[in-house]
Amino acid sequence: MSNPITLNINGKKRQITVRPAATLLDTLRLRLGLTGSKPGCLNGDCGACTVLMDGVPMKSCLMLAVEGEGKEITTIEGLINTPIQKAFIEKFAFQCGYCTPGFLMNCHALVYTEPNASDERIKDWLESNICRCTGYREIEEAVISVLNTVKGTH
């Protein structure tokens, strides 16, 4: 029981056949070799598998691959030299790195969606992801530093 689908991932069209029951996360990792999105809780709690769907963060463990048809999907592999990636390095916003792809996707969407985000809004967005190494403070500082840069250029 499989369906042929076309997924637009990181600007490239990928034609595959999937079980309708396959999650987007499993499809990305096991069928398309895009292993940057991480399996964590597989229950929509930890955010390690976050991808962007038409620019909106989504937990790919909570999506069927068939739902991705007709959408622009961005995974961590599609994020190259973005301000938030540089800020994560500059602010030491990771340790073991397992949660980092999910955080980066969420934070990237945050700085583009809400360039004037308040501290409260930043906290609200960051509550979608769990990190067991850092104290979150460095991640928050990375987001704030990008927001300040964006504000400075306007």
Binding site: G44, T50, V56, P57, K59, L62, N106, D124, E127, S128
Partner: peptide, 12 residues
């Protein structure tokens, strides 16, 4: 509804 689950989950 803003207190249900977390923001990314609420997108879905």
């Amino acid at each position: 509804v803003s207190e249900i689950a977390d923001r990314t989950a609420r997108n879905k």
